[in-house]
Simulated assay, not measured.
Amino acid sequence: MSQTQSRASSGPPQSRNSSGPPRSRNSSGPPRRRYQKEEEVWIPKTSIGKRVVAGEINSMEEILSQGLRIQEAGIVKKLLPDLKTEVIDVGIIQKMTANGQSTRFKALVAAGNENGWLGIGMGKSKQMRIAIEKANNSAYLNVSPVKLGCGSWECRCDQKHSVPFKVKGKGGSVVIEILPAPRGLGLVAGEKIRNLLKLAGLKDAWTTAKGSTSTMNSTSKAVLQCLRQTFSQG
Rank of each mutant, 00 (worst) to 15 (best):
S232L: 10
I88P: 00
I130V: 14
P30C: 10
K95L: 08
S27N: 15
L185D: 10
R32E: 08
L64M: 11
S162L: 02
A110M: 01
Q66G: 07
V167Q: 05
G151S: 09
G151R: 07
V90A: 10
K210G: 02
N115L: 03
G123Q: 07
T4Y: 12
G100I: 14
S218E: 15
I130A: 10
R16C: 02
K106D: 07
R129Q: 12
P182H: 06
G151T: 09
P22Q: 03
G123I: 02
K124Y: 02
K84C: 04
V76Q: 05
D158F: 03
L141Y: 14
S214N: 08
R183Q: 15
I48V: 15
T213K: 02
V188P: 07
S15E: 03
N113S: 07
A181N: 00
T85Y: 09
Q233H: 07
N58D: 15
E40C: 07
N58P: 01
S2A: 11
I176S: 05
S152I: 01
A181M: 03
L187Q: 13
N99R: 14
S232C: 01
G119S: 06
M128Q: 08
I48K: 04
L68D: 15
L118F: 03
Q3G: 10
R23Y: 04
P44G: 13
W42P: 06
M122W: 00
V53C: 05
M216D: 03
S144A: 15
K78I: 04
P180W: 06
Q159V: 10
H161D: 09
M96T: 14
E72S: 11
V174L: 03
F105P: 04
I92P: 04
R25N: 05
Q101C: 09
S138H: 07
R129A: 14
S214V: 12
Q225V: 06
N137V: 00
P145G: 05
I57Y: 12
K37P: 04
